[in-house]
Nucleic acid binder design. Structure first.
Lengths: 331, 331
DNA sequence: ATGAAAGCGCTAACAA
DNA sequence: TTGTTAGCGCTTTCAT
């Protein structure tokens, strides 16, 4: 374990003052070229690494951003995280990542950890059970911007970045309507989730304008397994749909297992359309046609908003990413 | 933006010294219960947050761990990260995450960032092109332990934590041999990857002991798409395998698309066995039988080793996770 | 062009 | 039981 290289050590070795070393290292114009190169060479040689803790303590400027999600290993969040990390690194920021495990208490702990580590700003997708926002308010009062993304609070006084859920769900509905499907099975997630509500409302409203031309069957499922059973059930005991809409990748997975079990031919016997982040639909043959709402896009948008906040922009707004139809062969 | 709450502020408000406040907050036995509660109450009221930068600067003890991977959004790394984060939080550590994008220069930058942020230790899965290890050596000389995981350097003088790749691949081969398959198509990844070499060698050696009872067809593919084409090719133009082995999820995905295209019945017409982290094989019906090498296990093992290093254990070792057969219905 | 000195917030040895 | 003080490594103002 070698002794740490500090400005003092360099200044001693060169018999110049600490401040001169500090300035030389930052190319301060006051310092003579000669001294500058001398200092830099030695710093290089000794593998000098500035101490971020000392810098932060002195300047009160942190180059670390906090990112809190319910779970990292999730096809959606990991793409978000990946994108934010990439942008952050470009800008000289580092990312501190924390998981709440969908538990409000852990989430609160994580917020505290962010504060302890004096992060410059926080990205957060809140848990399903988050109801107390005083902690968040305190963070913002301390001048630390928070960007809520994906799972966001209902209040309007926060910066939020969301998927274009409504428009995307409506678009999926339109695709189905345009194909003149007779019986459409639409599968949504848990009713309580705000994301379900939004997608549900936008999707069904398109069919309402159709008044009754299409037979719309709606169900809510809580997991892939439930989607699997639900689909089997419809095909075995109820009306045979000629189109299935899946609100999420999780649901699509269950539906596709049922499709494989029943040996249903896609798209000849059944059309499938999904909303997805983009990976799962490509696993099948033919690939599934889906409306893409991208975690990468959301990450980029969130990061841009964060930078703008960090630069002093105080406008509170709710931003939305775009969406895109990705054609597979399933409709 | 309210003014920061510091020890000094509390001490002023209470007209006692800073050190008394500091001690009271840490339940130092010297401090009277009265003072202790008084201080704690005020700290609570003011929402006091200790400054990690100041603490670190003073004590030279950082509670942050660095974690560098080629890419975050990857079914394997995200489970590793998830597990490490969970363990870290339990122990009071936070995680700083960096991506190298499989670029050695970016990787080097990331190492520097870890140093700048004075991380207590580093977990890293190196890029395919990492050849210069002086940077790593310097980090270790500075007393910062490095745990290499998954993609590890060939040298023996590092702490490494790896999958039980050889044993797992051998186990997969045994499963096939025991079923008396006639023609086995075994698909491996890029030849240069150390992971490919290990799996390849272990897998084929099992068949060698069989001397020729089984017709073993071997191919190397670089992507899901290549695996897809390769599989189609074998079934359309070459010998029809009655079993396929997939070295990775990526390959399995391509093979399964081909299976769907050709309408091959699993397991009646074809057996499939894979090596996987555990998610992809469950997407199909029947689910694919696989040898599981878990990112979570690897994360836990890596973290344990890190803690041991941090506590002064200097034993350099290469650790391996276990593996597990997960029965689907594909063989 | 360079140096001296103060101070960021905290801890810990020493004093009282 | 509490206070005083030095100092972690750095930046920055003010002097020289």
């Amino acid at each position: 374990m070698e002794s740490k290289v500090t400005l003092k050590k360099i200044s001693d070795l060169l018999s110049i003052s600490i401040s001169t070393v500090s300035r030389a290292l930052k190319d301060h114009p006051d310092i003579s070229l000669e001294t500058r190169t001398k200092v830099k060479e030695l710093a290089e040689m000794l593998d000098y690494q500035p101490n971020a803790y000392a810098i932060n303590l002195r300047t009160n400027v942190s180059k670390v951003l906090g990112l809190i999600v319910p779970a990292i290993s999730n096809n959606f969040y990991d793409s978000f995280i990946s994108e934010v990390e990439k942008e952050a690194r470009k800008t000289g920021y580092s990312l501190m990542i924390l998981q709440s495990n969908d538990d409000p208490a852990t989430e609160a702990d994580n917020i505290r950890l962010c504060r302890l580590n004096r992060v410059a700003g926080i990205f957060i997708s809140i848990t399903a059970g988050t109801t107390d926002f005083t902690l968040f308010n305190r963070v913002e009062e301390a001048g630390i911007p928070i960007i809520f993304f994906d799972k966001v609070p209902p209040q309007t006084n926060y910066n939020k970045v969301c998927m274009a859920d409504k428009q995307a769900a409506a678009k999926a509905a339109e695709l189905i309507v345009n194909r003149h499907k007779k019986t459409v099975l639409a599968l949504f997630g848990k009713n309580e989730m705000s994301i379900t509500k939004e997608r549900y409302q936008a999707f069904t409203s398109i069919f309402e304008t159709q008044n009754g031309k299409t037979n719309l069957l709606i169900d809510h499922v809580e997991s892939s397994a439930a989607a699997f059973n639900c689909t089997l059930n419809y095909f075995n005991n109820k009306q045979m749909p000629d189109a299935v809409f899946c609100m999420s990748d999780e649901i699509l997975i269950g539906v596709m297992k049922a499709v494989q079990t029943l040996h249903i031919k896609i798209p000849q016997q059944l059309s499938i359309i999904a909303m997805s982040n983009g990976f799962i639909p490509t696993l099948y043959e033919p690939e599934i046609t889906y409306v893409k709402t991208s975690g990468y896009d959301l990450g980029r948008l969130s990061f841009t908003k964060m930078m703008s906040c960090l630069q002093g922009n105080n406008t509170i707004e709710e931003l939305h990413t775009g969406y895109e139809i990705v054609e597979g062969g399933s409709i």
